[in-house]
Every structure is written in structure tokens, then in C-alpha cells.
């Protein structure tokens, strides 16, 4: 989703989908949120039935009631909450470092045409390097300390922010730019009142993408390297044969992912409440 600003056109699913424009009112059926709940319920039922009737191997794929029970047991252990804390700590720290670095470097690099062109090839080369490629060296240098997790998280999420900021900075309205110059705004004031507001929607998109990627890499690092956290808990559960618990942890990571996504969408809406893309939902 990096790149084409078209992707970040306003429209967040449901709102635009239900646009109450001048169209003839169609017969309204069941509300959307109910349908969504029905979908989730169907998934739970399916996971309950399929292992029981033998479509999925019961031994390795417990029905949802067992997963649910395992989850209920899990949330009563302090080990679980420590793991959630560890995962979130790595995620938040890594994301914070990557965001600050991405925004600052993005504004510096994007500020002049020369630096942009000079760094373009290097960025294009470094960005697609999968961050899991860093696992071996992270292990060698830091072992299972939090630094190895941070290295992966920061590397992966940094590019998401940087690329978006670079797009955002280039989006500055030339007229506004000239006006600011003509009125003698200094360098800092231009960044503050021109660059930053222009780039903010892009920054927010970048942050949202980075937050999702950071969570993936935090859990991956725990799983593969063995830093304390949900990933390690999952690896332990799987290797000790506690399969229902393994699935329960997968469900927890999914819920965390959804929460992170929702939270960042909310922050995006809140911080951009002044921006035209968020103000109206009028579809022209």
C-alpha cells in the first residue's frame, strides 16, 4: 500500500459504503454490524464442527469450545499477561523509534530535490530487504535480549513511515510554498506550518501500516529468536503439545492486531479531523 496516494483516499469501508446520498432509498435489510457478528459466529461454529466430524484432524485442530476454554485458562495466568506486556513493550518501543527516525529523516531528505534524488536508489535497494534477513545477525549480536527484537521491529516499520513521509513532503502545494517564502517564513516555520500539515495524512497512514508491521515482527522475533513474549509462549505451548493453548494464543495475537489497527484508525481520524478527507463524506 506504500506509494500511490490513491490508496489513502478517504473512504473507510462502512461509511462510504452506506453513503446516504440522493439515491432512492433501498429497502434496508439487516444492519451491517449484525451481519458482521453473524460472520464471526459462523466462523466459531465452523471451527467447532469441522474437527468434530473429522474434516479437520481433531488431534491437531481442537474445536472452538476447547480453544475457548484454553483461552479462559490462559488469561488467568500471570505468565500470559507478562508475555502480552513484553510483546507490547517491544512493539511500542520499536514503533516509537522507527516513527521518530522515519519522520525526521523523511522531512530532511524530502526537503530538497538533491537529497531526494541522491538517496532514492539506496532507499529502493534497502527497503525490500526482508527484515527477517536480519535475524541471524540479531541473534549473534544480542541473543534473546530485547535489542534483537527491536532491531527487527525498527527495521521493518521504519521504511513504512519513511516512504509515506517522502510522498507527503512532495505533495506540498507550490503556491503555498511560494507564499510562505514571500512572507519570509523561516525554515523552521515552513516545516511547522507547511510541510508538517501537508505530510500529516501520509504520516498517519505510514504509522498505521508501521504499527501493524511492528506487531508482526515483534511476535515473529519472539517466536524465532526466543525473546520473551507471546511468540515464545506460543512456541512453548506448541512444542509441549498444548495445542488448544497454541490456538488460543494465535487468537490473542489476532485480537491484538485488530485492536492496534482500530486504535490507529481512531488516532488518524482524531489527528486529521481538520483535514478535508476526513471532514465530509460527500461523494462527488
Amino acid at each position: 500500500m506504500t506509494g500511490s496516494p490513491a490508496v489513502m483516499a478517504p473512504a473507510d469501508g462502512p461509511v462510504a459504503g452506506a453513503a446516504p446520498g440522493p439515491r432512492p432509498r433501498r429497502r434496508r435489510g439487516v444492519p451491517q454490524s449484525l451481519l458482521g457478528l453473524a460472520g464471526l459466529a459462523a466462523l466459531v461454529v465452523l471451527v467447532e464442527i469441522l474437527p468434530r466430524i473429522g474434516v479437520l484432524p481433531r488431534e491437531y485442530f481442537p474445536p472452538s469450545s476447547e480453544i475457548g476454554r484454553a483461552l479462559a485458562d490462559l488469561v488467568q495466568t500471570s505468565e500470559f499477561w507478562t508475555s502480552v506486556g513484553d510483546t507490547l513493550q517491544g512493539w511500542a518501543l520499536g514503533l516509537a523509534i522507527a516513527s521518530v527516525a522515519g519522520v525526521v529523516l523523511g522531512i530532511l531528505i524530502g526537503g530538497s530535490r538533491f537529497t531526494r534524488e541522491f538517496t532514492a536508489s539506496t532507499i529502493e535497494f534497502l527497503r525490500p530487504i526482508p527484515s527477517v534477513a536480519l535475524i541471524p545477525i540479531a541473534v549473534l549480536l544480542f541473543g534473546t535480549d530485547i535489542e534483537s527484537k527491536l532491531l527487527l521491529v525498527v527495521y521493518a516499520s521504519f521504511w513504512q513511515v519513511l516512504i509515506q513521509v517522502l510522498y507527503g513532503v512532495q505533495d506540498i502545494d507550490p503556491v503555498a510554498q511560494d507564499t510562505a517564502r514571500a512572507y519570509g517564513l523561516g525554515r523552521w516555520a515552513r516545516v511547522r506550518y507547511l510541510t508538517w500539515p501537508t505530510a500529516l495524512p501520509y504520516v498517519m497512514t505510514g504509522l498505521r501500516l508501521a504499527a501493524a508491521v511492528a506487531l508482526i515482527l515483534a511476535v515473529t522475533a519472539e517466536l524465532v529468536i526466543g525473546n520473551p513474549g507471546l511468540g515464545k509462549l506460543l512456541a512453548t505451548a506448541q512444542s509441549s503439545g498444548a495445542y488448544a493453548t497454541t490456538y488460543a494464543i494465535v487468537v490473542v495475537t489476532g485480537i491484538l492486531g485488530v485492536l492496534v489497527n482500530l486504535a490507529f484508525r481512531a488516532v488518524e481520524r482524531w489527528s486529521l479531523s481538520w483535514h478535508p478527507s476526513q471532514r465530509g463524506e460527500l461523494v462527488v
Binding site: Y60, F61, L234, Q238, T246, I249, T253, G254
Partner: peptide
């Protein structure tokens, strides 16, 4: 779409690497 969207969002939110240990079993 309305029915499946939450399910799909949930599956997308699961960090894919955690599926490796599970698929290993299956």
C-alpha cells in the same frame, strides 16, 4: 462483504509467522 469483513480483518491481523507452528502440526 458485510458478513465476512470482520472475519477477514481478524485473519489479516494474525501475524502470519505464528501460523508456521500450527501448519507444521497440520
Amino acid at each position: 462483504r458485510a458478513t465476512l469483513e470482520p472475519v477477514l480483518e481478524f485473519f489479516r491481523a494474525i501475524p502470519p509467522p505464528v501460523l508456521v507452528p500450527i501448519f507444521l502440526l497440520l
